[in-house]
C-alpha cells in the first residue's frame, strides 16, 4: 500500500473515530454520572438524523440553524424521557438491571415510533459543503473535515464546561458520589437530567454530522450504539476523556484494518479488539483499575 493511501486511511479513521468519540463520550457521561448503561443511546442518534433530514433536506434551513435545532430537540426529548422513567427507577432499590431493561424498552419504542411516523425508507441528506481538499496525493472531502472540526470543537467545549464551570463541578461531584453531592446542596436530580440530555445531544450531533454520509432510517442507531459500547469499554467505562481517545483509536484501527481486509470485516475487527482489551486490561486502556 502506498504511504499516501495509508495516510488517507488514517485520516478517514480519525474522522470516523471523532464520531465514535461523540457517541461514546455521551454514553460515558451518562454512565459516569448516573451508572446507567443507555441502550437507547442509538435512538437519540437516530432522532438527530431525522430532525436534520426534515430541517435541512426537507425545509432547506441552513445547517448553521438546522443542526443546533435538531440537537436541542433530541436533547429535550431525552430529558423528558429521563424524567418520566429513569429518574423514577433510580429512586428505588436494586435499579441496576431495571434501568438497563428500561432503556432497552425505550430504545424499541423510539425505533418503532420513528418507523410508524416516518416510514422505513432510507432517506439521504445532501452534503453541507461540496468540494474536496487536495494536498499532494491526499484527498479529503470538505464534509469530512467539517465533521472532524465540529466533533473536536464540541467535545472540547463539553470538556471545558465540565472542568471550569459551576455546573461542571456539580456534574463531577454527582458522578463521584450522588449522596454526598446531595448533602452539599446539589440538586442531583436536575444534574442527572441535564447530563442525560447532554449525552443524548452529543449522540444527536454525531447523527447530524454523519447524516450526509450514511442513510437516515429508523434502525440507523444500532450499529453506532454497538460501536459506542466498544468505545466506552476501551476508554474505561464512565471516563469522558477515555471515550474520546477510545473513539478515535477505534476509528483508526477500523480504517486501517478495513484497508487490509474489506469493509464487511470492520465490525469483526472492532469487537475482536474489544475482547482482546478486556482480556488484558479489564478496566480499559485509559481507565484506572478499580479495586
Amino acid at each position: 500500500m502506498p504511504i499516501s493511501l495509508l495516510f488517507e486511511q488514517i485520516l478517514n479513521g480519525i474522522v470516523l473515530g471523532s464520531m465514535y468519540a461523540l457517541m461514546g463520550g455521551g454514553l460515558a457521561l451518562i454512565y459516569g454520572t448516573m451508572r446507567i448503561l443507555n441502550f437507547a443511546h442509538g435512538e437519540f442518534f437516530m432522532l438527530g438524523g431525522f430532525f436534520v433530514f426534515f430541517l435541512f433536506a426537507g425545509a432547506h434551513i441552513t445547517p448553521f440553524l438546522a443542526v443546533p435545532i435538531a440537537v436541542l430537540a433530541a436533547a429535550a426529548i431525552a430529558a423528558g424521557i429521563q424524567r418520566s422513567t429513569l429518574a423514577i427507577l433510580q429512586r428505588r432499590d436494586g435499579w441496576l438491571f431495571a434501568t438497563i431493561a428500561a432503556t432497552l424498552g425505550i430504545s424499541i419504542i423510539l425505533q418503532n415510533v420513528a418507523l410508524l411516523l416516518w416510514g422505513e425508507r432510507f432517506q439521504s441528506v445532501p452534503y453541507y459543503i461540496e468540494g474536496t481538499l487536495a494536498v499532494g496525493d491526499i484527498r479529503m472531502a470538505y464534509q469530512r473535515l467539517l465533521i472532524l472540526a465540529v466533533a473536536l470543537c464540541s467535545l472540547a467545549l463539553v470538556g471545558l464546561v465540565l472542568r471550569y464551570t459551576r455546573f461542571g463541578l456539580a456534574v463531577r461531584a454527582t458522578a463521584q458520589d450522588q449522596e454526598a453531592a446531595k448533602v452539599m446542596g446539589i440538586s442531583t436530580e436536575r444534574i442527572n437530567t441535564a447530563t442525560f440530555a447532554m449525552g443524548a445531544g452529543l449522540a444527536a450531533l454525531a447523527a447530524t454530522m454523519l447524516a450526509p454520509l450514511i442513510a437516515v432510517n429508523p434502525w440507523m442507531g444500532l450499529p453506532l450504539l454497538l460501536k459506542a459500547f466498544v468505545v466506552v469499554v476501551l476508554g474505561g467505562l464512565g471516563s469522558f476523556k477515555g471515550a474520546i481517545l477510545g473513539g478515535i483509536l477505534l476509528g483508526v484501527i477500523e480504517a486501517v484494518g478495513m484497508s487490509m481486509t474489506s469493509a464487511e470485516w470492520r465490525d469483526v475487527i472492532s469487537y475482536s479488539v474489544l475482547i482482546a482489551v478486556i482480556w488484558l486490561r479489564p478496566w480499559g486502556l485509559f481507565g484506572v483499575k478499580e479495586r
Binding site: 438497563i100 469487537y271 475482547i275 478486556i278
Partner: peptide, 13 residues
C-alpha cells in the same frame, strides 16, 4: 455493564 457489552460483542462477532 462490562459483562453485558463483552457478551454482546462476542455475539456480534
Amino acid at each position: 455493564p462490562h459483562v453485558a457489552i463483552v457478551t454482546l460483542s462476542f455475539a456480534e462477532i
